[in-house]
Simulated scan of single mutants.
Amino acid sequence: MTDTWIILGATSAIARAFIRKQAEAGAAFILCGRDIVDMEATAADATVRGAPEATVMPIDMRDAATFDAVIEAAKCLEGTINCAVFVGSMPDQAEIDADPSLIDGVVTDSFTGPARFLTMLCPVMEAREQGIVVGISSVAGDRGRLNNYVYGAAKAGFTTYLSGLRNRMGRKGVHVMTVKPGPVDTAMTWGMKMPAMTTPEAAVEDILKGVQKKRNVIYTAKIWFPIMTVIKLIPEPIFKKLSF
Rank of each mutant, 00 (worst) to 15 (best):
E78Q: 14
A64Q: 13
E95V: 06
A43D: 07
M192G: 01
D97Q: 10
S12I: 01
F239A: 13
A51Y: 06
A27V: 02
A94M: 09
C76T: 14
E236D: 13
T186D: 03
T189Y: 00
A10W: 02
D35K: 13
G105Y: 01
C76P: 00
L165G: 04
R145A: 11
M188F: 02
C122V: 08
C83M: 07
Q130E: 13
K222I: 06
V37P: 00
I223S: 09
E236F: 08
G79V: 03
I7P: 04
D104K: 08
V184M: 02
S110L: 08
C76F: 04
D60M: 06
D63W: 01
R215I: 00
C76W: 01
I231M: 14
A94D: 12
A127N: 11
A65V: 14
F86R: 03
F158C: 07
I96H: 08
P100M: 08
K241P: 05
A28Q: 12
T108E: 11
I30W: 04
Y149M: 08
L233D: 01
A94W: 04
D68R: 13
S89M: 06
N147P: 00
V176F: 06
A43M: 09
T178V: 10
K214R: 15
L146W: 10
I96M: 04
G79F: 04
Y151A: 06
L233F: 07
T4A: 04
V179R: 08
C76R: 15
D45G: 00
L208M: 12
M194I: 06
G170M: 08
R145F: 01
F225T: 07
I238K: 07
L102K: 15
I96C: 08
I6M: 06
M169H: 10
K209W: 10
T198D: 13
I218A: 03
L8G: 11
V176A: 02
A65G: 08
Q130L: 02
M57K: 14
N82H: 15
A140E: 03
G135K: 09
T108K: 15
M177D: 10
K222D: 08
P235L: 03
D142S: 12
P195H: 09
A25V: 02
W224V: 01
D185L: 10
Q22T: 08
